[in-house]
Nucleic acid binder design. Structure first.
Lengths: 266, 266
DNA sequence: ACCTGAACACCGTTCAAGT
DNA sequence: ACCTGAACACCGTTCAAGT
C-alpha cells in the first residue's frame, strides 16, 4: 500500500488540489517533513513543478493544506450520539488529536510552527474552537476561557508531539520496551548531581502507558480549570486566587472515568 | 549594534565553537530560522564553509547549539537569595523561558522540534529538570511527577511560542493595539456559526496582558497539581479522581501573588 | 484553464589542498 | 590542528511555451 508506482503510467484524469494534498500527506507520512519535496511530488504524480505551483501556490501552502486536511479529519470524528459531559468530550477530542499526531508525527512540528508563526492561521482556530466550546460548557467564567483553553491546547499538542517522537523510533511493539529502556537508560546516565529529578522519574516513564499518561495530564488541567474559579473571584485578574478556600463540587470535577477511553494496549 | 560588518577585515584571532554559535544566534535573531545559512555565517565570520563544519558538524548541530546556549542562559538566571515557595520558583522559571522565547522567537519552533525529534536531547532535560524539581518540592506524590511536569513544560513552551508569534509582528509598542485589533478582527470575521467560541473570546484577547495571561495558565495548572492528589489516591492510575471531594489546602494552593513577577508594561 | 519542462538562484555538504 | 574555496547534488520557484 505504500509504494504505488504511479509515475510511469500516464495520467488520464485531471489533477486536483485534493489529489496533490493527498499525495503530500503520503510523502510526509513516509519520510517526514524533509521527505516532502516538490520534485518527489512531481514524480509521484507524473507531472511538472508548474502544476504543483498552479494548484497550491508554494511548498508552505502545501504543508499548511496537508496539516489542515489531517487535523480536520481528526476533529471531524465527533462523539456519535451519546451526550457526554464536557470533560469527556474534551478527553475525546484530545485523544483524537493524540492519535492523529501519533499516526502523522510530522503534524507535531507543523502545528507548533503554525501556532508560532501565524496563530490565527487555518488549523489552529479549529482546535481552539473545538476545545474552547467545551470549556464554555464546563461553566468556566468568561475571564478564564482563553487561559483554560490555551492550557489544554498547548498541553495536547506538546504532549502528543513528544509521544509521537517516542513512538516513531520504535515501529513494532517488540522494540517498545527496548527503546523506552534505552531512553530511560540515557536519562540515568546523566550526571546525578545535575539531573536528580530526571533520574528519579526515569522508571515511571519506562512503565507508563502513553494514552493513560496523556489523559492524566488532561485531567490535571481540568481539575485546575474547575477548581480555580470561585464564586467571589474577580475575572479581571485571571489565575490568581484571592482566598485559599476551594469550592468542592465546582463544575463536576475532573473525571468520573465514565465513557473512559477504550483501554489501550494490553 | 546589529550590523557589525566583520566580513571585510581579516580575523587575527582563532575561530572557536563559541564564536560561531554566538554569530548563529545573532543571525537567528535578525532573520529567523531561514536566516541562518552556512553562507551567511561564512560571510559574517570571514571564513569558509569548511571551518563551520570542522567546528560544529552540520547545520542541525549548529541550531541545537544555539538553542542550548540561549536556554541555558535563561535557566541560569535562578532566583538570587530569597527562598521562595516552589510555586513562585516555577513561575520565575516559566517567566524566564517566556522572556527568552519572546527575545528569540525562533526558540519556540526550535524547542518544539527538538522535543518531538529526540525528546532526550540536550536542552529538554534541562527544562524538565528545572520544573520537575519544583514539582517534587510541592509535595506531589511520585506517581504524578511526570504528568505534572509535562503539563507545565508543554504549556510554558506552547504559550510562550504563541506569544512570541504575536509579539514579533508588532515591533514597536504603538503597533501593538493595531495588531491585536487586526488579529481579533480576523477572528471576528470567521463564520459565526462555525466559530462562536473564538468570536466570543476575541475581545478578551485584545485587552489581555501577555505575561499576566501566561501566569494565569501556570496558576491554573498549579491548582490542578496541588488539588489532584488526595490522601486516599492510587498513584497507579494518575489523573483519575476516585471521589469528587477536594481537599482544600492541599499543598499550598496556586498562589498568593507573593513575590509576583515585576508588573509588565504600564 | 491547465499542464510541461528547462532554467535560475540558492542551499547544505564534502574534500583536496594549504598553513 | 585549523582553515580555504572550488565543486557537487539538491532544493524551491519561475516562466515561456504548449494544449
Amino acid at each position: 500500500m505504500a509504494t504505488r508506482t504511479r509515475q510511469s503510467q500516464r495520467r488520464t484524469d485531471a489533477l486536483s488540489r485534493e489529489r496533490i494534498v493527498e499525495a503530500a500527506v503520503e510523502l510526509l507520512d513516509a519520510a517526514g517533513e524533509t521527505g516532502l519535496t516538490v520534485r518527489a511530488l512531481t514524480e509521484r504524480l507524473a507531472t511538472g513543478p508548474g502544476t504543483i505551483y498552479w494548484h497550491v501556490g508554494n511548498r508552505g501552502g502545501l504543508l499548511d493544506a496537508a496539516t489542515d486536511a489531517v487535523v480536520a479529519a481528526a476533529l471531524a470524528t465527533e462523539p456519535a450520539g451519546a451526550p457526554d459531559t464536557p470533560q469527556d468530550e474534551i478527553r475525546a477530542v484530545a485523544l483524537g488529536l493524540f492519535d492523529a499526531i501519533a499516526a502523522h508525527p510530522w503534524l507535531a512540528t507543523q502545528l507548533a510552527t503554525q501556532l508560532s508563526r501565524s496563530p490565527w492561521g487555518a488549523v489552529t482556530p479549529r482546535i481552539f474552537e473545538s476545545i474552547g466550546r467545551r470549556v464554555q460548557a464546563l461553566g468556566v467564567p468568561e475571564g478564564h476561557w482563553f487561559t483554560a483553553t490555551s492550557a489544554l491546547v498547548h498541553y495536547i499538542l506538546g504532549a502528543a508531539g513528544q509521544n509521537a517522537a517516542n513512538a516513531r523510533v520504535l515501529g513494532s511493539e517488540a522494540d517498545r520496551a527496548e527503546f523506552l529502556d534505552a531512553a530511560s537508560k540515557a536519562w540515568e546516565e546523566l550526571d546525578p548531581d545535575d539531573y536528580p529529578f530526571i533520574r528519579a522519574v526515569a522508571d515511571q516513564v519506562r512503565e507508563h502507558d502513553d494514552r493513560e499518561q496523556f489523559l492524566g495530564g488532561i485531567d490535571l488541567i481540568l481539575t485546575g480549570v474547575t477548581t480555580l474559579h470561585l464564586p467571589a473571584h474577580d475575572p479581571g485578574e485571571p489565575g490568581r486566587r484571592p482566598s485559599p478556600e476551594i469550592r468542592p463540587g465546582a463544575a463536576g470535577g475532573s473525571g468520573t472515568s465514565a465513557a473512559g477511553p477504550r483501554r489501550p494496549r494490553s
